[in-house]
Nucleic acid binder design. Structure first.
Ligand SMILES: [Mn+2]
Ligand SMILES: [Mn+2]
Ligand SMILES: [Mn+2]
Ligand SMILES: [Mn+2]
Lengths: 226, 226
DNA sequence: TATTATTATTAGGATATCCTAACTTTTTGG
DNA sequence: CCAAAAAGTTAGGATATCCTAATAATAATA
C-alpha cells in the first residue's frame, strides 16, 4: 500500500540521524562520526553504534571509517520528516505567535510525536504551503519538493505570461495582501509593458495591477514555456 | 526556582503511569499491577519494574503486593501533565477540527513532547479555558483545578438555566445519544416546567427535549448563579 | 479454615542508547 | 613517504524498558 512503508518503526534518535544526513546530502556535504557526535551531543562510539543499527535496518549504507550515506528507503523516511518539520514550523509561526528563530528547537522534538493525521490537518489549515518560515521548501505528501526551476515574476519578459506558483512566505503580511488582490497559487499572470523601471504592470485574470519591482522579486512563477 | 521542580527528567512511560495513577486517585479508585499492565499493553513484570523505578524516584509509594499511591511530588507532576493533556485536546478540537472522540490518542503522545512555552501559547490562544472538550476541568499553571460546584441537571429548578459541563462518561451510548441531540459541554440548557414527575422538559438552544429523570441525574451542569 | 484461583514478584534475558578506555585506521604535513 | 594528529572503532559497562518462566503472596470460596 504504502510505497515508502517503513516496515519497522523509527525511533526519535534514528529519525534525527536520517534528518541530519538528508540535510547534508541536500547541501552536497558529507558528515562523519565526530561531527555527528558533536551535533547530537553524544560521544563518538554512540554514533558508530547508531550508524551500525541504521545500516542493519537498511536506512543508511555504512562501511567503517567511511562517511554514511542514506539509502533510498532512508531518504524517503527523511523526506517525510522534513515535511513534518517544515509544516510544524510554519504552523507555529503563523498560528501560535512563535518567532521564526525560536521555532526550530520546539519542532525538533514535536516532529517525532505528531501523527500523519495532525500533519494533514495542519497542512490544510495552512493552505498547503510550499515554503517554511525560513524559506525552505516543503515536500508534498509524495515526497516531491516544490519545483525549484521557478523564476520570479520580476524576471518574466514583458508580454509573457506565467502561473503564480508560490511566494516567499516568510512575509505573512504580503501573503494576505496578494490574496486580497486575487493572487493565489494557480492564478495566471501576464506581465504587460509598463513605462516605469521600478514598477510592473501585471494582468491577473480581469484585473490589471501595478506592482513594485521589489514585490515582484518575491513572487515565484512557473514560466509559460513553449 | 521551580516549586515543583522535577529534579530528574520524567520519561514518557513514567509520565503515563503518573497520569493514570492521578486519574484513578481522582476517581477514588485504586489500580494494581495487572490492570496497569493491561492498560499499557505490557506484561505484569514490566509494571512491577516500573513501579520500583517510580518509587526510587520518589513519585509513588510502593510496597510489594500493595497498590501504588502517588507522592505529593508525583501528584504535582501528574497535575501538570493533566493540564497539558486537556489544553491540547481543547486546542485540537477548537482549532484543528479534531473530533472530541478522536483527539485523545493523538494527545496521549503529544503531551510528552510539547514544551511549557507551547502550552502557554495554546492556553492564551484558547483564552485560558477551564474545561476540556469532554467537560473535564483544566488545572491552572499552579495546579489548581477550577471550582467544580457542579450540580446535576435533575436538581436544576424549573425555569432556571445552566451550562452543560460534563456527563458520566463511562456510558458511551448515552454520550452519543446526547451529542445527537445537540448536547455537548458548553451547551446552555434551560429547564422548563413539565407536568410529569419522572420527566424533564429541557430547552437546548432552539430545541425542546423531553428527558427522563434518570438521564438528567447523570448530566452535570454549571448552574447560572447570580 | 483449607484449598484454589488470582494477582504480583523474582530471576534471567533481550534490545536500544549512551559512556569510558584502549586500540586502529586514515589523513596530514614535514 | 612516514610519523604525528585526527578520526573512528571495539571492548566492556550502565540504565531504561520489556519479555518468559518460575515462584510467592493474597484473595476468594467451599
Ligand atoms: Mn528547523
Ligand atoms: Mn527532531
Ligand atoms: Mn484525553
Ligand atoms: Mn501519554
Amino acid at each position: 500500500m504504502n510505497e515508502t512503508s517503513t516496515s519497522s518503526s523509527v525511533s526519535p534518535s534514528a529519525e534525527e540521524y536520517l534528518l541530519t544526513l538528508f540535510r547534508k546530502e541536500v547541501g552536497n556535504e558529507q558528515i562523519g562520526t565526530s561531527k555527528l557526535a558533536e551535533l547530537f551531543d553524544v560521544k563518538a562510539p554512540s554514533v558508530t553504534g547508531m550508524l551500525r543499527r541504521l545500516h542493519k535496518r537498511g536506512w543508511v549504507t555504512y562501511k567503517r571509517y567511511r562517511p554514511p550515506e542514506l539509502t533510498d528507503l532512508g531518504r524517503s523516511i527523511a523526506t517525510k520528516l522534513i515535511r513534518r518539520h517544515r509544516l510544524l514550523e510554519t504552523y507555529l509561526v503563523s498560528h501560535l505567535e512563535f518567532d521564526p528563530d525560536e521555532v526550530h528547537d520546539e519542532v525538533e522534538i514535536l516532529e517525532h510525536a505528531v501523527s500523519d493525521t495532525l500533519i494533514d490537518r495542519i497542512d490544510e489549515k495552512l493552505g498547503h504551503p510550499a515554503f517554511d518560515p525560513h524559506g525552505e521548501p516543503i515536500p508534498d505528501e509524495n515526497g516531491h519538493s516544490p519545483n525549484m526551476n521557478l523564476i520570479t515574476l520580476s524576471t518574466v519578459a514583458e508580454e509573457s505570461s506565467a502561473v503564480f506558483s508560490r511566494m516567499d512566505n516568510r512575509d505573512l503580511g504580503m501573503k494576505k495582501h496578494l490574496t486580497s488582490l486575487g493572487l493565489q497559487p494557480g492564478t495566471n499572470l501576464t506581465r504587460m509593458s509598463s513605462g516605469q523601471a521600478d514598477q510592473l504592470l501585471v494582468k491577473a485574470g480581469e484585473r490589471l495591477l501595478k506592482m513594485p519591482e521589489k514585490i515582484a522579486q518575491l513572487i515565484w512563477v512557473w514560466p509559460d514555456t513553449y
